[in-house]
Design a protein around this nucleic acid. Sequence first.
DNA 1: TAGTGGTCTAGACCACGAC
DNA 2: TCGTGGTCTAGACCACTAG
Lengths: 258, 258
Amino acid sequence: MSHDTDIARSAELADALGAIALDSETAKHEQVRNRLIEVIELLQSGDRLPPERELAARFGVSRMTLRQAISGLASAGYVVRVQGDGTFVADPTISKSSELTGFSEDMAARGFRPSSRLLAISHVSAGAALGQELVISPEEMVFHLERVRMADGIPMCLETIDLPARLTPGLDQQPLDQSLYEILRAVYGIELFEADQVILPTVVNQEQADLLRVPVHSPALIVKRIGYDKKRRPIERAMSIYRGDRYDIRMTVRRNPT
Amino acid sequence: MSHDTDIARSAELADALGAIALDSETAKHEQVRNRLIEVIELLQSGDRLPPERELAARFGVSRMTLRQAISGLASAGYVVRVQGDGTFVADPTISKSSELTGFSEDMAARGFRPSSRLLAISHVSAGAALGQELVISPEEMVFHLERVRMADGIPMCLETIDLPARLTPGLDQQPLDQSLYEILRAVYGIELFEADQVILPTVVNQEQADLLRVPVHSPALIVKRIGYDKKRRPIERAMSIYRGDRYDIRMTVRRNPT
DNA sequence: TAGTGGTCTAGACCACGAC
DNA sequence: TCGTGGTCTAGACCACTAG
C-alpha cells in the first residue's frame, strides 16, 4: 500500500468523521456504530481504522462507548480487531452472518426483485401439532397462508405460514403479495426477533414441481421455522420449499460467537 | 412458582456462588462467565438470576465486568435480559446458535458417538479452482482426503477435504479416523475460527448411495465450506454430503446479532 | 519501545417494568 | 415508587504486535 494512498484515505476519513451531531433519542454507541459503517464503506477491505482513542475523541464519546460500537461491528463481521496492531475492515464475506431475514430481504440482498403470489389463505383452528408448536390451544384460530415467492418473477420457493389470528386480526385484508414481516411490523407492531430453523433435503412432488416450474423429483430444500418475538413468544410457523437449482443457503459461521 | 421453590433455589444459588477463587491467568469476565454457566445449569428455564449489582458484589468484580460476562451468555443464548425486570435462564433452544463445529462435536452434541473411515488420502497439486478458493498457487501441493463419517456406527456423511500441504506436513501419518479439527489444533497449532458455508440439496448417485447405505436418488444435503483461521487465512475446503433421512441442519437465527 | 486493542474499575444517570 | 437492566464516563493498567 503506497503512502499516497494512505494520505488519500486519511482525507476521506477526515471528511467522514467530521461534524458529528449526536441526537439524544438513540443510544450513543448506536449512533457511533452507524457513523462507523459509513466510514467503513468508504474504505477497502484490509484498511486500518484509526485507533480507538482517536475515534473516541473525534466522536466525543468515551473509549468504552466507542468500543461498544466497534464490538457490534466486529461480531457482525464488518471489521476484525487485532490486539497490538489495529482494527481492520473485513473482507466482504458471503453473508455478514446467519441472521434472521425474510424472503424479501434475502432476495433484495442478492440483487433480485422479490414478489409473491398468494395461493390461499384460510382462518382455521390450530389443531394439536400446530397448537403445540405455537404454544396455543388447539381450538384457537390461526391464519393459514400459502404463497409462491418469486425473484425477478421466477418462482423460487413455496411458503406455508401459520400465525395465531389473535395477534393479527384482519390479516386476510392485508396485501399479502408483499413482505409479511413488513406487514407484521407496520400494521401489528410485531417484530420477529429470533427463530429456530431446521433445514432438510427433499425432492418435489408433481404439484410442487408445477408451481416452481421445475421437473418432478427435482432436489429442493425444506426450511422449517418457528419465529419468536423478543420475549420468545411464538409468532409464526413457516415451512418453505426452495428449488435446489437456483437457490442455496449461505452463511458465515464462527467459533465461539461470544 | 411457589415461595418454597424460590427459597430452595436461593439456597442452591448461594452454594453455587460461594467461595470464588479467581486466578490471574484467565480474564475475569471469562471466569465469571464460566461460574455463571455452572449456576445456570442448577436452575430451570425461566428462573430469574440475581441482580447484576448483587452478582458483581458476590464475584468481587465491577458491574461492567459482570455485564461483559452476561452479555456473552445472552448472545450465546443461555439467558435473556429484560430491561426493568431481570435476567432469566433461557428456554433450551434447538441449538445455542449457528456455530462453527466439526462433525465430531456436532454428533457428540446430539448424543451420538462419532467415528470415521478414511477412504483415500492423496498429495496432489491444487489446480486452478481449488487454488483460487484457498488463495494458493495452482501448483502448490495439497492433501486431499475422503472420509465416511459415522454416528454410532451408522454412515451419516461423505466428506471431501483439501488442505494446503505446507500447513500440515505429514498429515498422512496422522490418525485420520479421528477429529481432523482436533489434529489441526493439537499437532499443527491451527485453530479454525470462521467458515463460509453454502448448503444445497441433491440426490445421491449410486456410489454415494452404497457408501451411505441409502437407496440411490435419495435426498441429501451438500454442505460446502471454506474454513479460515483468525486472520482469515484459508485453511481448508470441505464438501460434505449428508444423508437426508437421518440428518438435518438446525440453527437459531436472530435479528441484528449485535 | 511505542502504540495498539483488551480488560477493569467505581461510580453516575437513564429507561423500563412490576407493583 | 422502586428495582431492574441499559448506557456512559474518565481514567488505569495489561497483553500483544510491529518496527
